[in-house]
C-alpha cells in the first residue's frame, strides 16, 4: 500500500519590492520537508519568483495582492509540489505573450518571465481572462531513485 502525505500552505502577499523572495522561501521550506533535492527546489523557487514579478509588474490589479497556494504531496515513488500564483488584475493573452518571445538563447532584455517559468517547471498552465485576473498553476516533480 502506498502512503501519501500532503502539506498545504496559502499565502496572501502585498505587491511590494522583493516580496517574491518570501513566496519562494515558503515554497522552498515546504519542498525541503518533502525531501526534494536542492536543484529541484532552486528551479521551482526561480519560477515562483518570475510568476510573482509578472503579477506585480503586469497585472495592474487594484488590490495589490498576490495569492499563493502550495500543495506538496509525497508518495512512495517521489514527491510533487503544485503551486498556484493568482492575481486579480487585467489578465493577458498567453499566446500573444509567447509569440513575442525571443528564441531560447537569443539575448533579449525583457519578456522572459513566462519562458523561464516554463523552463524551470515540469508542468505549467495558465487561467486568465480580460479583467478577470490570472492564475498560473505550476508543478514540480521529484522521482525517487529506484
Amino acid at each position: 500500500m502506498t502512503t501519501t502525505a500532503e502539506r498545504q500552505m496559502e499565502l496572501t502577499l502585498p505587491m511590494v519590492a522583493d516580496i517574491e523572495i518570501a513566496a519562494a522561501r515558503a515554497a522552498g521550506n515546504l519542498a525541503r520537508e518533502l525531501g526534494m533535492s536542492s536543484e529541484k527546489i532552486d528551479e521551482m523557487t526561480h519560477a515562483i519568483i518570475e510568476a510573482c514579478i509578472n503579477a506585480r509588474e503586469h497585472s495592474g490589479c487594484a488590490d495589490n495582492r498576490i495569492y499563493l497556494r502550495f500543495v506538496g504531496t509525497s508518495q512512495g515513488d517521489g514527491s510533487r509540489i503544485d503551486v498556484w500564483v493568482t492575481d486579480h488584475g487585467r489578465g493577458f493573452d498567453p499566446a500573444e505573450a509567447r509569440s513575442r518571445r525571443p528564441a531560447p538563447g537569443v539575448s533579449h532584455k525583457r519578456g522572459r518571465g513566462l519562458q523561464l517559468i516554463e523552463a524551470h517547471m515540469d508542468e505549467v498552465s495558465i487561467s486568465t481572462s480580460s479583467g478577470g485576473g490570472t492564475t498560473i498553476h505550476m508543478v514540480k516533480y521529484e522521482k525517487k531513485e529506484s
Binding site: P102, V106, L116, A119
Partner: peptide, 10 residues
C-alpha cells in the same frame, strides 16, 4: 539553476 537561466536568457 542560474547557469540554466543565463542560457535561456541568451
Amino acid at each position: 539553476v542560474i547557469h540554466k537561466t543565463f542560457q535561456i536568457m541568451g
